[in-house]
Simulated assay, not measured.
Amino acid sequence: MRTVLVTAVAGAVVAFLLGLLTFGVQATVHPHDVPLAVVAPPPIADRVARAGTPEVDLRVVQADEARNLLEAKEVYGVLEIASGQATIRLNPAVNPSGTQIAQQVLTGVAQGAGLPVEVEASTASAAERTAPLAVSALLWVGGMVAGLLFVVLKGRRLRWLSALTAAVLVSGSTVGLLAWWGVTLNGPALGFVLAVAASFALLQAGLFRHLGIRAMAVLGVLYLMAPAVAGQVPELLNPAYRAVLWSWTPFRFSTEGLRSLMYDGAVTTEWWVFGGIALLGVVLLLAGKKAQTDRADGIVDVGVHETDGLPRAESQHTA
């Protein structure tokens, strides 16, 4: 009876936690302080400034500042009003969900002023909008499967080489899949994909080395919860999810970094993040002795001698 109760409670707790960390992110989505910029003559600018809501942060700025903010991805869209015409400017390197919200809100502002609206933005296909998050998830899964099979097949040497080889091959297969979808990556983006794949694979290999197959309890949960957070606009997330999950998940940095590089942008923080992850993986691979739990069947070798059934150390006889 005790086993029945324990297993049932464990199942309920796991289901609750996974729901909280995955579906809960989407269930609690609500915009707050979404940053947008407006360039307009004084009468309209004053009216726009007074129209702010808790959901949207409308910043009235000059044209040059607005374009700098958009290029730096500090706003999701810019509305420029001049000579009786409203132009909405969007940046394809920004989260597509954020640009969609920006276009809707800024269109409403322009229509409220009785102005015709023109949208100026580079067109991004559905595949290009999907690619950054998809690549991040696929690189993680590829490295995780390679590390798991290394344990199941009882590999004992050159684990680091297995991780790096998997990173190269998984990167190649992922880039090939993108090409099939019609998405071509430039040189910096390709290098970034390979760096992310290597850092993921090294970290996973290090965890498998010390935890064995039990590392799946960590790596699997990270995969389930991180993509649900990384693909969201941070201003749409519940503040608790934004602070506890979005702020640190590596999927967020890989997704945003790749999206920027796809459109000839630049990244800095992302290189430091994945360099740190790779370094942590190398440290785990080099630190300490290999855990006995590295065996997939969970059997620990105690060194029993085949002839006398005693531990090898005890089966040694002095002359």
Rank of each mutant, 00 (worst) to 15 (best):
A198T: 15
W181K: 03
E235R: 00
A189Q: 00
V283H: 06
F251G: 00
W246S: 00
A163S: 12
L258P: 04
W248H: 02
S162V: 15
V145T: 13
L280M: 14
E270I: 05
F208V: 13
V282N: 08
G143R: 11
V244W: 06
A278T: 05
V145R: 03
S260A: 15
A243W: 03
S247K: 00
N238R: 02
L169I: 15
A278E: 03
W180L: 15
G206L: 13
G275I: 02
W140F: 15
N186S: 06
A163K: 07
L245G: 01
G265W: 04
A195N: 04
W272A: 14
D264V: 01
R209D: 04
V267P: 02
T184W: 09
G147R: 11
V282A: 15
I277D: 06
L185A: 10
T184N: 04
L279N: 01
V141D: 07
W272D: 01
A163N: 03
I277M: 13
L190Q: 12
F200K: 01
L237P: 03
A146Y: 09
T268Q: 02
V175C: 13
G220P: 00
A189N: 01
T174W: 12
T255H: 03
G172N: 13
M144K: 10
L139A: 10
G155D: 04
L138K: 13
M216H: 07
S260T: 09
G276S: 14
G142F: 10
P234S: 06
L153Y: 12
R242Q: 03
G212C: 13
S260N: 10
L190I: 10
V152Q: 11
A146Q: 12
L138P: 06
R209S: 08
V175M: 15
S254R: 03
V229L: 05
L164M: 14
L207V: 10
W271T: 00
T184R: 12
T174V: 15
F200L: 10
A228L: 13
L185V: 01
V273S: 01
L285E: 15
H210W: 10
R209C: 08
V218I: 15
V244A: 09
G176H: 13
G281C: 03
F200A: 10
G206P: 10
V221T: 14
S171H: 11
S260E: 12
A163H: 06
S173K: 13
A215S: 14
S173H: 14
G147T: 13
L219T: 01
A166M: 09
I277G: 05
P188R: 08
P188T: 03
L280N: 06
L158N: 11
L138W: 14
A163W: 09
L148H: 07
G257H: 08
L261E: 01
L261R: 03
L178F: 05
V196M: 09
W248G: 05
V141T: 10
L224N: 02
W248V: 00
L177S: 12
L177V: 05
G231Q: 03
